[in-house]
Amino acid sequence: MTTTIGSILTVSSYFLRSICFLHISHSYIYEFTETRGESMLPTLAVQNDYVHVVKKYKNGRGCKLGDCIVAVKPTDPNHRVCKRITGMPGDYILVDPSDSIYREKSDSDEPFNTYIKVPNGHVWVTGDNLAHSLDSRTYNSIPMGLIKGKIVAANDFNQPFWNGSLSNILGFRKIQNTFIDEES
């Protein structure tokens, strides 16, 4: 009897320690997690796309304009969003220059004349797919304290195991900073 209880205790203690180790490494070091939704097309697929998140960038530490990040949704602490940073603290950025489909019909200049200055400690985030993304254009800039990490790479499980259209294992590719020098 005592040996049974003892072995149950041992097993659950090992279990607890492994779970906690996993949890700590997920929140401070690295996480591999699924993403969903069309807001980051074409960078991330609508479903079955898994991202590699580095947690060194937690709380926005070392994040730059053009980085892809995972953050807690400001309107729901139980949801997380993947977005791209398009404004750092102090930057002047256009609130919403997109929506070209409607733009072509109306000649209004307003979308190119509505700027905000990103407040201290905040970042402006938008999805890569400006047509279908709920982001800073709706909920304003987000505090860096909500940033959980930076996406450095992704695996697209829609791709075949070997040599898919991305000619790599399991659709692996790096997610890069897209803020680049403009050659005129």
Binding site: N59, G60, R61, P143, G145, I147
Partner: peptide, 22 residues
């Protein structure tokens, strides 16, 4: 503690500063 149903008026909380996450 981040769930709205656990938060009441006059509770004292610790929050990350919005202007400086550290």
């Amino acid at each position: 503690c981040t769930q709205s149903y656990n938060l009441k008026r006059n509770d004292i909380v610790l929050i990350k500063s919005p202007s400086d996450p550290h």
